[in-house]
Simulated assay, not measured.
Amino acid sequence: MANTILRSNHHSKAFQALKLFSLLLLMQRVGAYEFKVGGAKGWTVPTDPNTIAYNQWAEMKRFQIGDSLVFIYPADKDSVLQVNKEDYEKCNKANPIASFADGNTSFKFDKSGAYYFISGNEENCHKNEKMVLVVLADRNKNTNSTISASPPSPPPSDSVDITPSPVPAGEESPHPSGASSIIMSFIGSVGAFVGSSLILVL
Rank of each mutant, 00 (worst) to 15 (best):
Q56M: 11
S8H: 15
D67P: 11
N128C: 04
S145A: 15
D48L: 05
A98P: 07
R7H: 14
G170A: 06
I162H: 09
G103V: 03
C125D: 00
K13F: 10
I5D: 10
G42D: 03
V37I: 01
F100A: 00
A40E: 04
N124D: 14
V70M: 09
I118G: 01
A101H: 13
H10Y: 10
E129L: 08
D67S: 07
H175F: 09
P96N: 04
H175R: 07
N121E: 08
V80D: 01
W43I: 00
E171T: 10
G66I: 09
G191F: 07
K90C: 02
S196M: 12
A179Q: 13
K77E: 13
L200S: 06
S173D: 12
Y33C: 14
L198H: 01
A179K: 14
A98M: 06
L20W: 04
D67N: 07
S159I: 02
N140Y: 06
A17Q: 14
N92H: 06
M1E: 13
V194P: 05
E59S: 15
A179D: 10
G103T: 03
I65G: 03
E86W: 06
A137V: 09
T4P: 06
Q64A: 12
S8T: 15
S196E: 12
S150D: 15
S196N: 14
E34Y: 10
K130G: 04
D158V: 02
L81R: 02
A192R: 12
I65A: 07
G120M: 03
A149Y: 08
S189E: 06
H175V: 11
A53C: 06
P49L: 02
G38C: 01
S181G: 14
N124K: 05
V201H: 10
L6W: 13
M131N: 05
S153G: 13
K141R: 14
N140E: 13
L23Y: 13
G38H: 00
